[in-house]
Nucleic acid binder design. Structure first.
Length: 292
DNA sequence: AAGCACACCTGCTAGC
DNA sequence: TGCTAGCAGGTGTGCT
């Protein structure tokens, strides 16, 4: 559920309240959240480091690390490093500004970072799909090598409709599968794919290779609009998957969903009941009269 | 070789 | 009312 707009909202919170702080102490209580390189590597990579920047690529958060760069056996490469965070399905980053240790620790808190201003950054994740790791090997834009397979980020690089059209014509898969493919665009997930399809008046089950050029261009515009509005609204917070920002506040874009989570409810455009089907294994919502 | 099924998890809910 | 089976989905892997 956390997709580009939700992760971007968390990024902005980090930018405003965490960037510039130094990590004084790291505690890992959930090994699965640090499974990529292990807790020793995370602690060694973060201890004493300055959190120098907060960027994002797709659904990945990238916190640039400054300050002393320890030559340790876990991060022998010289040059810049970054803390990479992926929230996956249920991960949350929460900032506790009260004196460290004075606020009850929520269930499923797996990593705690004590910062030099007395605040504490916590990683909470009931389903433990999310992860944190420190990596070197950043390219010129500060993107880790492990994320090299991601396509352009709609907010960072923008959406090139011509490129989207070129990619679409070579495929036989569904429009839904195309949109949630992170190599096509980084950051679009099931929810915003459905909302963009509604705005472009295209059914998610359409074969993407069968789309006309004008339809793909319409899709590019729809994606830009939906993602932009969702970011402005602070993302979507659903009933079950309760995404919240750094301060625990929900987003409000769920109040503007046209189709997602609205099965059986009237289409905002024509009143016809919204339908839900499975496309490429994903729950897909659409209006059968407005979308072709 | 692209495209698909499946595993990984826990919390919520629809349906007995 | 209480229980459980099923569903939710991002990504990595493995199979076709």
């Amino acid at each position: 559920v956390p997709e580009l707009p939700e992760v971007e909202t968390v990024r902005r919170g980090l930018q405003d309240h965490v960037v510039g702080r130094r990590v004084d102490h790291v505690v890992v209580t959930g090994q699965r959240s640090v499974r990529r390189h292990g807790s020793d590597a995370l602690i060694a990579g973060l201890n004493g480091r300055r959190l120098a920047s907060a960027s994002r690529r797709g659904k990945y958060l990238l916190v640039g690390l400054g300050g002393s760069s320890p030559q340790c056996r876990w991060h022998p490469e010289p040059g810049p490093q970054a803390l990479v965070v992926h929230l996956r399905m249920s991960g949350q980053l929460r900032l506790v500004r009260a004196p460290a240790g004075s606020v009850a620790v929520a269930a499923h808190t797996h990593v705690r970072l004590w910062l030099d201003d007395g605040s504490e950054l916590r990683f909470v994740d009931p389903r433990t799909f999310g992860e944190l790791f420190v990596t070197g090997e950043l390219d010129g834009r500060g993107v880790p090598a492990v994320l090299a397979g991601l396509g352009p980020d709609p907010l960072v690089e923008g959406i090139d409709p011509e490129r989207l059209w070129q990619l679409a014509t070579r495929r036989r898969a569904s429009l839904k599968a195309f949109l949630i493919d992170q190599a096509v665009l980084a950051g679009v997930g099931n929810l915003y794919a459905d909302e963009a399809c509604f705005r472009a008046r295209l059914r998610p089950g359409r074969s993407v290779g069968g789309l006309r050029r004008a339809e793909v261009f319409r899709l590019a515009r729809a994606l830009e609009e939906v993602l932009g509005e969702a970011v402005a609204a602070g993302g979507s917070t659903l009933r079950d998957a309760r995404y919240v920002d750094l301060d625990g506040h929900p987003g409000s874009f769920q109040d503007h969903h046209a189709v997602y989570g609205r099965e059986g409810e009237p289409c905002l455009g024509c009143g016809h009941p919204i339908r839900r089907i499975r496309v490429s294994g994903r729950s897909s919502h659409f209006c059968p009269t407005c979308q072709r």
